[in-house]
């Protein structure tokens, strides 16, 4: 395995591309100079801090519990992100957190239960991060889609309720459509992998000097996990939300209009 460390000099050199972005902003008077500088600086500080923390957690001598604590924080933080990105979805923070928890329990149980990866800090944290990162977006999508559909087609939902259907039956076609919408991009990207783009984990491994086929094995395992995780998260979010939108006696709650 050949080392692919970028080094501080390499990192500084990569800033040339930030300068290109700044130059474009100045040339076209986009007034984005400050934002570009701020984003680049913030990303640098954030990732360096994460790197230092990861170095401590991934130390072979460190207790694996630190890694689990890290995962716990990721779940809570993901719940907050979901709430912020889907403000019109009632109970989004709790539902999102539960969905992320379900993703972690299901995916890591498979990964570690079947011995696909060893239970170590260096596997727990990145795998959990990848599952949560991908599932979070789908969770937001499914939540917003369900609320938008039901707000727009409230009369149809209530006409179904008025026929004596349970809230679950009344809302089923809309939840089903939203689940499909949230899952299809993931299925598409799974199908296109390798042809259209090289996924992150594989690219990282190849850059780090790992044999390409070994990198592919890791990447495939991760892609299947991500697919399962996204399916788990949208199912928990979709079904949880469809309960949250109705009272126990099958009345549809008032909903605020979705933010465009």
């Amino acid at each position: 395995m050949t080392s692919t460390a970028v080094g501080w000099a390499g990192l500084a050199a990569s800033l040339v591309l930030v300068v290109v972005a700044l130059a474009l902003s100045g040339w076209q008077r986009l007034r984005l100079g400050r934002s570009i500088l701020w984003a680049a600086a913030r990303a640098g500080v954030q990732l360096l801090l994460v790197g230092l923390a990861l170095r401590l957690i991934l130390d072979p001598d460190a207790s694996v519990w630190w890694a689990w604590l890290w995962v716990g924080l990721m779940v809570v933080f993901a719940g907050r992100v979901i709430r912020n990105r889907a403000r019109e979805v009632p109970g989004a923070a709790l539902l999102g957190t539960v969905a992320m928890l379900a993703v972690i329990v299901v995916s890591l149980a498979v990964v570690f239960g079947l011995g696909i990866f060893p239970v170590q800090g260096r596997t727990i944290v990145p795998l959990a991060g990848m599952m949560i990162g991908n599932s979070m977006t789908s969770c937001v999508l499914v939540g917003r889609r369900i609320v938008a559909e039901i707000t727009e087609r409230r009369e149809e939902v209530e006409a179904r309720l008025a026929l004596g259907l349970s809230s679950a039956d009344a809302v089923r076609p809309f939840v089903r459509a939203a689940l499909r919408t949230a899952l299809i991009p993931q299925i598409e990207s799974t199908r296109a992998v390798g042809l259209v783009f090289l996924p992150g984990a594989m690219t990282g491994l190849v850059l780090a000097g790992v044999d390409a086929l070994d990198a592919v094995e890791v990447q495939l395992a991760i892609m299947y996990l991500v697919l399962g995780s996204v399916a788990t998260s949208v199912a928990v979010m979709g079904l949880g939300l469809s309960r949250r939108l109705f009272t126990d006696d099958h009345r549809l709650v008032e909903l605020t209009r979705p933010v465009p």
Partner: peptide
Amino acid sequence: SRHLRRRVGMVF
């Protein structure tokens, strides 16, 4: 309420 709604129908 489900039973009630089958006894008291509604046309919108």
